[in-house]
Design a protein around this nucleic acid. Structure first.
Ligand code: FES
Ligand code: FES
Lengths: 148, 148
DNA sequence: TTTATAAAAGATGGTTTTATCTTTTATAAA
DNA sequence: TTTATAAAAGATAAAACCATCTTTTATAAA
């Protein structure tokens, strides 16, 4: 549906948002660990999110990644756009070069419903909202580890 | 969303179904050409669909691919299952190892709506139904070629 | 039975995605 | 200014996916 890079990116952004307070900054190691993502790959993704101003970074000692107040209100779809682009929300479900109502594939009507629902899911949800859920303990950005 | 192999497979199956009449059989070249798919790759996919009894094949002269009456009623999700498997309809949208309501990711509720809509799209549509649309001329399994 | 035909099976190559490692740059504190 | 720290940038490696090519097998007609 969306790439692994994008999934890691969303989880990371939510985590950073969930830990936002005073001037605290998080480094790659902490972030990757907390969201169950490979560290070096996460670094690349965070770099990309910083370029797109989804999050903010600061180099050097006491540096790291953090999210600013104005960035919290962004919809999650901004992250998808930064990493995967918007094509998943536009492309034909059966792989035709163009998706259009005037030259539709046989599944166009049904597929479009699902595709639009997916777009709405990412469009109508802000990073702040998701971070809040995590802080409440009602949802999680890491895997459940089952005990013996 | 779904793999290219799967998209080609669905288009090919619909095409074969749309040409079903008497004992006519279609060969790979014709099918690949009509659905705008690479020929050798299409051969591999048709092979897989035959294994899963989505379509039927016969080797030798006057052989080729065709679809039997009882196969027409199958939902398109059977093709997705044969090629990609069912994981796309079960997996967490944010990449957690398990999608569950008891340990949900922050997007679980919204994502599940879209994912279920996608599953319904493929589950509630039969190959026959889509082939009929193509025969009516109301939808297409190949790309629109724009003239000068 | 021989021959031609078309799919099946198996081997191989290219591209994209996922992931890691090394070097460089920025920055804050000492 | 020096030093330590952490991200940025760039190079490289591994895996998955997309695609093609060659050899084998099945089958129908001559
Ligand atoms: S044309 Fe295929 S989904 Fe729109
Ligand atoms: S847990 Fe993420 S979609 Fe269900």
């Amino acid at each position: 549906m969306i790439s692994k890079a994008c999934q890691y990116g969303i989880r990371a952004a939510i985590f950073i948002a969930s830990r936002r307070n005073d001037g605290i900054k998080l480094n790659v190691k902490q972030i990757a660990c907390e969201v169950d993502a490979p560290e070096a790959f996460t670094a690349k993704i965070l770099q990309e999110l910083n370029k797109h101003r989804i999050i903010t970074s600061l180099k050097g000692p006491y540096g790291g990644f953090f999210i600013e107040e104005f960035q919290l209100e962004q919809p999650v779809i901004n992250i998808v756009n930064a990493i995967d682009g918007m094509s998943v929300f536009k492309e034909c479900g059966l792989g035709l070069k163009q998706c259009s109502a005037s030259h539709p594939c046989p599944m166009h009507d049904q597929y479009k419903i699902a595709r639009d629902a997916l777009q709405n899911a990412f469009q109508q949800t802000s990073i702040r909202h998701l971070a809040l859920q995590v802080n409440e303990g009602s949802s999680f950005i890491n895997n459940l580890v089952l005990k013996n």
